[in-house]
Amino acid sequence: MLLEGSHFIHSPPSRVFALLNDPDVLSRCVPGVKSLVLDGTDSYKAQVEVAIGPVKGKFDGKIAITEKVQDQSMTLKVEFKSPVGIANALGTLKLEPENDGTTVHWAGEPQLMGMIASVGARLIGGVAKVQADLFFSKLELEAQKVES
């Protein structure tokens, strides 16, 4: 199922793009992140704890940026495993300049496997939106910080 949305960040595309490629920034923005380290070029290892209501899963995984066009777009490949199942996703981010900032259009196809797929499929749409909202609101905060 294709999920998509968009968020407005009060910063020009060049700054937003830079933030999205900064591991320190990402480690503060990715929801529930416990650790996020660079693992090669444009590739990260991460440990994330996702909590939706009572469901809590500790996910181990990788985030790889497979394509990028400077200041315009990025394609991400995400693979996360946990005892409750596996969550993979192929996602795109497109940066569009708008007024005094950037509208980030995100789109992704999540692939759930294991227990979370067999009992959680009805929630994936909402969960993805929640995670995206959290990510972008934190990104907005990062964007507000004074540029060093």
């Binding site: 692939q111 759930l112 496997m113 294991g114 797929a117 067999s118 009992v119 499929a121 009805r122």
Partner: peptide, 14 residues
């Protein structure tokens, strides 16, 4: 079954 062969109707909730 979804396109990845995942059984998404795997409980009596679905």
């Amino acid at each position: 079954y979804d396109d990845n062969g995942q059984l998404t109707s795997g409980s009596y909730l679905e």
